[in-house]
Write a protein that binds this DNA or RNA. Structure first.
Lengths: 338, 338
DNA sequence: GTGAAAGCGCTAACAT
DNA sequence: ATGTTAGCGCTTTCAC
């Protein structure tokens, strides 16, 4: 079925109206006589006309497409966020160009430049690190950008997230209450703002508030990797640590399984709290006690906010930082009694 | 920093050449005198010119964007496929519009129509079901479409996948070898082609080849859902089943954990083989024995093949069905000895 | 309420 | 090797 494309002109011609009128009915403009509208609609249906979004984008300077940057598409935490974004995007008729940061071939800057070249109407950045190059790209672009599910260095960018400092403190306090003297911290990377400026300082503060000593040697880095975290378990044990807060569920599963394989009893010998509350937390045995984040909602709210910024051109300078609630969900890697 | 956009015309003017020449250097056309090229390049850099991909798309009728349809973005199996797709797409400078099928708001047909409206150059469909409406959309479109990580009803669409029938037989045979009389099957949905026409018939054939009886009551449906599969465990037990092949790792984890919670010993009392081999398989205790699929590669090959179809306009009628190898990886939900 | 016409920023013949 | 000139399919004033 070879088809020479049916354009707005074809429809206009067939319906004996002008392109402008067709455009009006397609875009729901009210200034069209009902009879005319019906006639046009009929022709559109008969010819199976579909507006070309590219042409529309060029003419209107809006693409109804948003760029979504994700650290890793297979990461359960960000996948949940993306699900929220995708759902809300669908509601508002936006499509999303999704790109992962961990591709071999592309630098983050290229990823963004490509999105910008495609004239996306906005960008949701899920990522832990914002290089100066990237920041410059964002600044130079006229479109809204927001950070979702993380925090980046400066607060120039609006964000939707939980309070990572408080979540860390809640966890450490909970563990300290159980009498642990050496409480460890396992994060993905220790230089990213979410950790360097939030979780690690909060960990230290909480420790000290509890009268415990902060020792940098008790902070471990697992690169958000299951295997690596699994390997780390022995070291953590060697350090004399008996309780651990882990920023990510997958890493937590790694040390939990390693501990079990090493003959340790969790939570009797060792307690663990994981920081995300993804589906993974319920897969392990024992199930992971977690700080549970409203991941889907974080994504949904992000996209909702972005649509607002895109349509109302809001936000240039008004600081938009939505901080959602987290909660500590006790499962089986912490002791029930105090 | 308000900016009136710098276009190809701005550059041409500033460099004292024509738009055509600028276009040539931007597109790497060799027919440009080196000095001219350098001059243009200098201006491009100085003005920070970035080609507008939308305008380019309209003029060239190529968007270097592909549509990727995924059943659920949080599904580990498809996420792995998507990772492969994304990586290869980056290599070939394609962006991907990713849409999940499980959004509340959108019908599959709308998802596709939106992609088509955006003039994607090709579509990778990861999904188990192809309605007639969808098929019609694909047929009417001039772009290549391929199915990845699944099979759909008719074979009109090229696909990249493993041999699901053989994988099922391998699993059933393995289990039968261990002397089980009642081997069950747990799939996501029993009406999708991948199950209705592949796994279920293969299950039956393998059973009968082993002299065992096929009983439809031993085929369970878990909707690719962990909780639902967890609940199903008791029923499966009640059926007198002692070994199970599960199409998806997450569902397998569900029955495995339920069985453990019910006091059953896996693999001593019950054996399980899961069908995907995602990261989840190694998270559970005991770890899941799986049919392992080269998920990343399936995605990568899909995208590679699609680029070929997009550039060479290949594939209209030549049947392209890439079938990759799977293997049975023994972990801990099956017995080591025979 | 409807039409005419001028772009949107670029590519792609076709000239030269 | 470079410039000219049409479009690509649509939106959007501005008239009528």
């Amino acid at each position: 079925m070879k088809k020479q494309p049916v354009t707005i002109y074809t429809v206009a011609h067939e319906a004996n109206v002008s392109m402008a009128t067709v455009s009006r009915v397609v875009n729901g403009n009210t200034n069209v006589k009902p009879e005319t509208r019906d006639k046009v609609l009929e022709v559109i249906k008969r010819l199976n006309y579909r507006p070309n979004a590219v042409a529309r984008g060029l003419a209107s300077k809006k693409t109804t497409t948003v760029g979504v940057v994700i650290p890793q598409i297979t990461d359960g935490y960000f996948a949940e966020l993306a699900a929220g974004i995708d759902d809300v995007a669908a509601i508002y008729k936006y499509d999303m160009i999704l790109t992962s940061l961990d591709t071999v071939e592309q630098q983050p800057v290229q990823v963004i430049q490509s999105m910008l070249a495609k004239q996306v109407d906005g960008i949701i950045f899920m990522g832990h690190d914002l290089s100066d190059d990237l920041k410059k790209e964002f600044d130079n672009s006229a479109i809204p950008v927001l950070v979702s599910g993380s925090v980046v260095d400066d607060d120039s960018l609006p964000s939707v997230r939980i309070d990572y400092r408080q979540a860390t403190k809640d966890s450490v306090n909970f563990l300290a209450q159980h009498g642990h003297q050496k409480i460890g911290l396992l994060v993905g990377y220790d230089q990213t703002p979410i950790n360097a400026q939030n979780r690690i300082p909060a960990y230290q503060e909480a420790l000290e508030a509890q009268g415990l000593v902060f020792d940098p040697a008790n902070v471990f880095v697992g690169h958000d990797n299951y295997q690596e975290s699994y390997q780390l378990a022995q070291q953590i044990l060697d350090q004399g640590i008996t309780a651990l807060f882990v920023s990510d569920d997958l890493m937590a599963a790694g040390v939990l399984n390693a501990l079990t394989d090493l003959g340790k009893k969790v939570p009797d010998d060792f307690e663990i709290i994981a920081g995300n509350g993804t589906a993974t937390a319920q897969l392990t045995r024992p199930m992971l006690t977690t700080i549970s984040q409203p991941m889907y909602d974080l994504g949904a709210v992000s996209m909702r906010l972005l649509t607002k910024m895109m349509t109302e051109g809001a936000g240039e300078d008004e600081e938009l930082n939505v901080v959602m609630n987290h909660e500590l969900v006790e499962r089986q890697t912490t002791r029930a009694d105090q």
